[in-house]
Amino acid sequence: MLKDYSSTLIIHLEVIDGQLVTLVIESFVVDIPEGNTKDEICYFTENLLKFNLRTLRV
């Protein structure tokens, strides 16, 4: 479903309320295939990214 997908993942360690946490920022660029809308592709990609980031949790 994704065509010409690329992403950038930036990870920062931050101290919030005295606790060390990991802040993850991800941005992506993807072509919108014919027959799909921008909203559909963004929804799909954002949910895929959320799932992948949850698997990184310790």
Results as ranks from 00 to 15, higher is better:
residue 32 I to L: 00
residue 37 T to M: 04
residue 52 N to D: 06
residue 30 V to R: 07
residue 24 V to M: 06
residue 58 V to C: 03
residue 39 D to F: 13
residue 7 S to L: 12
residue 34 E to C: 01
residue 12 H to C: 03
residue 35 G to T: 09
residue 47 N to F: 02
residue 31 D to P: 10
residue 47 N to A: 00
residue 54 R to C: 01
residue 16 I to Q: 08
residue 9 L to H: 13
residue 10 I to W: 04
residue 1 M to L: 06
residue 28 F to P: 05
residue 27 S to M: 11
residue 38 K to C: 11
residue 42 C to D: 11
residue 37 T to D: 06
residue 57 R to C: 04
residue 45 T to Q: 07
residue 47 N to L: 01
residue 3 K to W: 06
residue 25 I to K: 14
residue 31 D to E: 13
residue 43 Y to C: 06
residue 39 D to G: 09
residue 49 L to C: 05
residue 44 F to L: 15
residue 53 L to W: 06
residue 12 H to A: 03
residue 26 E to Y: 10
residue 11 I to V: 14
residue 21 V to T: 11
residue 31 D to V: 11
residue 39 D to T: 15
residue 3 K to F: 00
residue 34 E to S: 02
residue 36 N to D: 07
residue 51 F to M: 09
residue 36 N to T: 14
residue 31 D to R: 15
residue 12 H to Y: 07
residue 8 T to K: 15
residue 57 R to W: 13
residue 13 L to M: 09
residue 16 I to M: 02
residue 45 T to S: 13
residue 53 L to A: 03
residue 46 E to L: 11
residue 34 E to R: 08
residue 33 P to I: 03
residue 30 V to L: 07
residue 41 I to K: 00
residue 1 M to E: 08
residue 16 I to A: 03
residue 32 I to Q: 00
residue 55 T to V: 08
residue 9 L to G: 02
residue 19 Q to C: 14
residue 44 F to S: 05
residue 34 E to V: 09
residue 12 H to G: 12
residue 22 T to G: 02
residue 31 D to W: 05
residue 2 L to F: 13
residue 43 Y to W: 10
residue 32 I to G: 00
residue 9 L to E: 04
residue 6 S to N: 08
residue 46 E to H: 01
residue 54 R to D: 00
residue 8 T to I: 08
residue 25 I to L: 09
residue 36 N to Y: 15
residue 23 L to C: 07
residue 58 V to R: 09
residue 2 L to I: 12
residue 57 R to V: 15
residue 54 R to V: 02
residue 7 S to P: 10
residue 49 L to M: 12
residue 23 L to W: 14
residue 17 D to W: 07
residue 27 S to I: 15
residue 1 M to G: 14
residue 13 L to P: 00
residue 6 S to M: 01
residue 18 G to P: 10
residue 48 L to E: 03
residue 30 V to F: 04
residue 36 N to F: 14
residue 4 D to R: 07
residue 15 V to P: 04
residue 48 L to F: 03
residue 23 L to H: 15
residue 24 V to T: 12
residue 9 L to C: 12
residue 2 L to N: 09
residue 29 V to I: 10
residue 33 P to W: 03
residue 42 C to N: 13
residue 17 D to V: 13
residue 31 D to L: 06
residue 39 D to R: 15
residue 45 T to D: 02
residue 25 I to F: 12
residue 43 Y to L: 13
residue 21 V to P: 05
residue 26 E to T: 15
residue 55 T to D: 05
residue 15 V to K: 12
residue 43 Y to G: 08
residue 9 L to N: 13
residue 1 M to C: 07
residue 46 E to G: 02
residue 27 S to K: 15
residue 47 N to M: 01
residue 45 T to A: 08
residue 53 L to G: 06
residue 4 D to S: 01
residue 7 S to R: 11
residue 16 I to T: 08
residue 50 K to V: 00
residue 13 L to R: 11
residue 2 L to R: 04
residue 24 V to L: 06
residue 37 T to C: 07
